[in-house]
Design a protein around this nucleic acid. Structure first.
Ligand SMILES: [Mn+2]
Ligand SMILES: [Mn+2]
Ligand SMILES: [Mn+2]
Ligand SMILES: [Mn+2]
Lengths: 221, 221
DNA sequence: TCTATAATTTTGACTAATCAAAATAAATAT
DNA sequence: ATATTTATTTTGATTAGTCAAAATTATAGA
């Protein structure tokens, strides 16, 4: 059985490969998302490989094996279903649920997970707009793209917020930057690293590029 | 912050002191309930004492400090509230919830715990009939006694089942040995280690003394 | 009181996970 | 093509938690 450390490593490796569409995740990035030193990430890479979860390419990066991907998908399902439960049933704010789910995902059994899924009515997206993998480990391919890639005057709809940072999520909620929201890009200053948006109700919001990369949208109309 | 191992040790030490009304729990018993070797229990006792959770009396046993008791009570609250949630909300069977709660109790935050308590309507007893400690760490003193201590012909009401064994709980449910059930002791053979019961509906059940010790009852009428 | 038995503690070893700091390799800039 | 910077790996050490088996102490029996 995988320890929760192993589960975290695999899940984060999966999330990076999904978000960045790369096949090998460099060790530095692994170390960063897991909050450990690079040496620790390297030594974990070796034991994850020894146990058949990943393939480790020294000085290049790591990729999930079939077995590793299966577990990672299951962890992502757990994480996102739990986030949904915490918002829908217990009424927590979407800015705090990530940290909670980060712990609960390792403690919940498969049986409780499926009961929870039933109880929630088999939701397909979590509160941040991210797709919830099916029981079989299939995840809906996201066709949305970062807001930062769209030109001035584009009309878009927010699909998801992929930043889990508490402060950013609180700001986003306050600014109506939530999944489903329709926006128009009314300003884009590449040299100033800034994007200006207008919501349907006329509210104006300014975002830096770094933040705009974390808001995934689809063109609208 | 206490690790989940520490939380388990403290909680089990508390449960034994509550159930057996003793002040020092011998190491052998600690080892047994935690499923570790006696040497492991001894070495844990030393580190629990070093960190101020317990007092360790070599060759005698351990007792909780104020700090240790506070944490242990909180763990018991978590455990029993989670068990209640699993039965009431998700519909799991009472024979499987103990193992589930054993993991979840370490992963749930104080905030989620209190939301859950609200959601459940602040229950005072768990599905096995055991009292749920309050947020402040107060637990209702149980006045009930083991069924095995009552004489033939006594009429009693089941208050709680303190055995967490899956098979026993399934048997108990099937035999109507659940909290609230009224029983009459229609036979007691001390030399044969057996007790015979009749439920209100006339159902007859045989229990060994070992099992009858795990059914806590109050005299009725 | 001596002895056999039971309970407890000690010793030595192991795994998982981590860090700090030194060593090495790769990428970039001059 | 070198030198500098950056990324990665190695090395040596630490902590928590565990076991097996030997050593010790306490308990109970005769
Ligand atoms: Mn996690
Ligand atoms: Mn999410
Ligand atoms: Mn536990
Ligand atoms: Mn219970």
């Amino acid at each position: 059985m995988a320890t929760s450390t192993v589960e975290n490593y695999l899940k984060e490796i999966l999330v990076i490969t999904l978000e960045e569409e790369i096949s090998k995740v460099p060790m530095g990035q692994v170390a960063k998302v897991l909050g450990v030193t690079p040496g620790t990430a390297t030594s974990m890479a070796k034991s994850l490989e020894r146990d058949g979860w990943i393939k480790y390419f020294p000085r290049v990066g790591v990729s999930l094996t079939k077995k590793g991907k299966k577990l990672a998908m299951n962890m992502l399902r757990r994480h996102r279903l739990l986030e949904t439960f915490l918002v829908e049933t217990l009424g927590l704010d979407w800015s705090e649920i990530h940290a909670e789910a980060e712990e609960l995902e390792h403690a919940i059994s498969e049986k409780v997970l499926e009961k929870l899924d039933d109880f929630l009515g088999r939701p397909r997206f979590d509160p941040h707009g991210d797709p919830i993998p099916s029981k079989g480990g299939v995840i809906q391919q996201m066709t949305s793209k970062p807001l930062s890639e769209f030109p001035e005057d584009a009309s878009v709809r927010i699909e998801s917020i992929i930043d889990q940072n508490k402060e950013f999520l609180r700001f986003a909620r306050k600014s109506n930057l939530v999944p489903g929201q329709l926006l128009k890009i009314i300003g884009k200053e590449v040299c100033a690293d800034a994007i200006t948006l207008k919501t349907l109700k006329g509210k104006v919001v300014n975002l830096g590029f770094r933040s705009a990369e974390k808001v995934l949208v689809l063109p609208y109309e």
